[in-house]
Design a protein around this nucleic acid. Structure first.
Length: 196
DNA sequence: TTGACGATAGTCT
DNA sequence: GACTATCGTCAAC
């Protein structure tokens, strides 16, 4: 059921981002198991993408995770308080990443509610990259963790997403990226109450 | 060593 | 719809 490591090694990060829709993101943090269907992703195309932390080959202590081989997790802090969860793809030294922006809660919903301190019926309960991390229990301790391990992984439960249920749009929240802001790298599951 | 700023979310009008 | 909390990172000094 777990996605094989080959899935993350593919070279087309946009294609992977599209195929992640409908997959199940699972976490087991501090003995608590939760899972959700991935319903929104964004692809970041490494060195050639100004919106990426690794643009133009930028390499720092923080971004070194992105240069590892695909199949690991990249988590970092934004605005001083929000964790962002990314899946690293492609082979070593190609810093491709996919930001998970939204999920649809499946298992362990009561634990998600406890983590967030709110009912799952509230608007935006699981929408937005910061919220995804919060309800799934993901934080910066998980940076660099393998998706083949038993803390965070992604399963294929054979949920088929018809291509006409996928909406492709420009990415958001990256106005600083100049011309790359307009790239159509965002994939959203349509007809789904768990998306905006 | 320091300062400017961000792949946001929640709150208040 | 606008406003701001809040701090790790990074690049410049």
């Amino acid at each position: 059921m777990k996605l094989p490591s080959e899935f993350y090694l593919q070279s087309d990060v946009k294609k992977i981002a599209r195929h992640l829709l409908g997959k199940i993101l699972c976490t087991n943090v501090k003995g608590i198991y939760t899972s959700g269907i991935i319903s929104e992703t964004e692809a970041y195309e490494g060195k050639t993408d100004k919106a990426s932390h690794a643009w133009n080959g930028r390499f720092t202590e923080r971004t070194q995770t992105m240069y590892e081989q695909g199949g690991i997790v990249y988590v970092y802090l934004c605005y001083g308080l929000h964790n962002m969860f990314n899946v690293i793809t492609n082979v070593k030294d190609i810093p491709h990443a996919i930001l998970i922006r939204a999920v649809q809660p499946v298992e362990g919903i009561e634990h998600m509610e406890a983590r967030k301190g709110a009912s799952s019926t509230v608007k935006n309960f699981s929408i937005g990259p910061g919220n995804v991390c919060k309800i799934m229990g993901i934080d910066r301790q998980h940076n660099g963790v393998s998706l083949e391990g038993n803390n965070i992984w992604i399963e294929d439960r054979k949920i088929r997403i018809p291509s006409n249920h996928i909406q492709i749009t420009p990415r958001i929240g990256i106005d600083y990226a100049e011309e790359d802001t307009a790239r159509l790298n965002r994939y959203v599951l349509k007809n789904n109450k768990y998306y905006l």
